[in-house]
Amino acid sequence: MESKPSIPYVVGSKSPMAVAINCAAKAGEWIKSRLGMVKDLNTKFSPQDLVTDVDKGAEAMIRKLIHTHFPDHEILGEEGVAPGAEASAAAVTEAKSAEYLWIIDPIDGTTNFVQGFPFFCVSIALAYKGDVIIGVIYDPTRDEMFVAEKGKGAYMHGNPTRVSQESALADSVIAVGFNPDRKVAAPINLKGITALSEQTRSLRAGGSAALHLAYVAAGRLSGYYEVNLSAWDSAAGALMVAESGGIVTDTTGHPYDIGVRNLIASNGKIQDQLLAAIKAAGATGC
C-alpha cells in the first residue's frame, strides 16, 4: 500500500509552506494598515456576521499569490462561499475531494477588526486529498506567525509550540465562542458556556476561532469549544493543536476532519472531561 508523505512534493518555484507564510504575512501587513479605514461594511448571514472590503481584498490577494505558484490548486475561501451553515457545509463537501485544496479565512475575527479590538488573524491551510498538511495563522497586531506541517511539528517564530499540561478541567482556562447564528448555534453554545463556567478555572471569548486554536497549541489555553464553525475557521489551527501534542475532535469525540462544524480542542489531558461536560449540558450541537 502506497504511503502518503506529509507533503507529497514541491510544486512550482516555492514550497507550499513558503507560499502559505508569504501569503499570510503580506495579507496581514495590508490588513493591519487598514485598521480604522474600513470603507464598506456589510452583514452576511446575520447582523452579527460582518464582512468588509478588507476581508474581500485580503482574500483576493491571497488567491492571486497562491495561483501564481500553484495555478491548478483549488481554493476554498470564506468570502467565496454563500453565507450560512448549509452553504458552508455544502462548499466543504464539494471541495474536500480536491487533490490540493487551500482553505482561507482572510480575517478570522472580522468584528474585532472593525472594532479595532486587536484579536484577529489570517488563517491559511492546505489539504491534500482532504487531509490538512499545512497550517499557517498570522496575527498581524502582535506579529506572531504560527505554522504547522503534518508530521513535522508546529512552531511560532521558529520555536516549537507545546500544549499545556493541566490534567483537570477545574484547573483549565477554556476558550469559547459567541456564534453569529443567534437562532440555532448561539443557544447551544450558551448551554456549553454555562456548564463550562461552573467546571473550569475561567473562560475566554476572544472572537477568533483560529487564534483560539493557535493559543491551545501554544499552551496559552487548555482547550476550546464552539459549535457551528466552518473549515476556514478551524483547518489550520486544528493541525497546529495536533502537531503540538493536543487533540481535536467533534463534540461527540470523533476525529477532526475539515467537515467538522462542532469542535472541541484541548491539550489532550482534559479532552474526555470536556466532551463529558458538553454532552451532559446537551450542547454538542448534534
Results as ranks from 00 to 15, higher is better:
256 Y>T: 00
219 G>R: 08
48 Q>C: 01
281 A>N: 01
239 L>I: 02
273 Q>A: 08
119 F>S: 04
85 A>E: 14
213 L>I: 04
72 D>W: 08
4 K>L: 08
267 N>L: 06
38 V>Y: 02
219 G>A: 03
141 T>G: 10
271 Q>V: 00
218 A>I: 02
208 S>W: 12
246 G>F: 01
254 H>A: 14
124 I>N: 02
102 W>Q: 06
178 F>I: 01
156 M>W: 05
131 D>E: 12
61 M>W: 13
275 L>F: 10
89 A>I: 13
73 H>E: 11
207 G>R: 15
271 Q>R: 04
81 V>G: 13
93 T>R: 13
13 S>L: 05
25 A>K: 15
37 M>D: 12
43 T>C: 04
64 K>Q: 15
95 A>W: 09
88 S>K: 10
273 Q>D: 09
3 S>R: 04
46 S>P: 05
89 A>H: 14
20 A>C: 07
55 D>L: 00
41 L>S: 12
238 A>N: 08
204 R>S: 04
1 M>G: 15
279 K>Q: 02
172 S>R: 04
89 A>Q: 15
39 K>C: 00
268 G>P: 11
242 A>H: 01
67 H>Q: 14
275 L>T: 07
8 P>D: 10
135 G>D: 10
149 E>V: 09
18 A>F: 07
81 V>T: 13
243 E>Q: 10
286 C>Q: 13
203 L>A: 05
97 S>E: 05
158 G>M: 00
125 A>S: 06
20 A>M: 03
238 A>K: 03
156 M>F: 08
223 G>P: 11
174 I>L: 09
156 M>P: 06
253 G>S: 00
86 E>Y: 11
260 V>K: 00
15 S>M: 08
278 I>T: 02
108 D>C: 11
2 E>A: 07
282 G>R: 03
286 C>F: 14
28 G>C: 11
84 G>W: 08
123 S>P: 13
236 A>T: 01
118 P>Q: 04
132 V>D: 08
135 G>S: 10
192 G>N: 11
105 D>T: 04
77 G>Y: 15
178 F>N: 11
239 L>N: 05
242 A>W: 03
144 E>R: 00
59 E>T: 03
62 I>K: 06
194 T>N: 15
60 A>C: 06
115 Q>D: 11
132 V>L: 02
201 R>C: 12
72 D>A: 05
80 G>V: 06
105 D>E: 05
106 P>S: 06
264 I>H: 03
238 A>T: 08
161 T>F: 12
158 G>Y: 04
118 P>G: 02
224 Y>F: 14
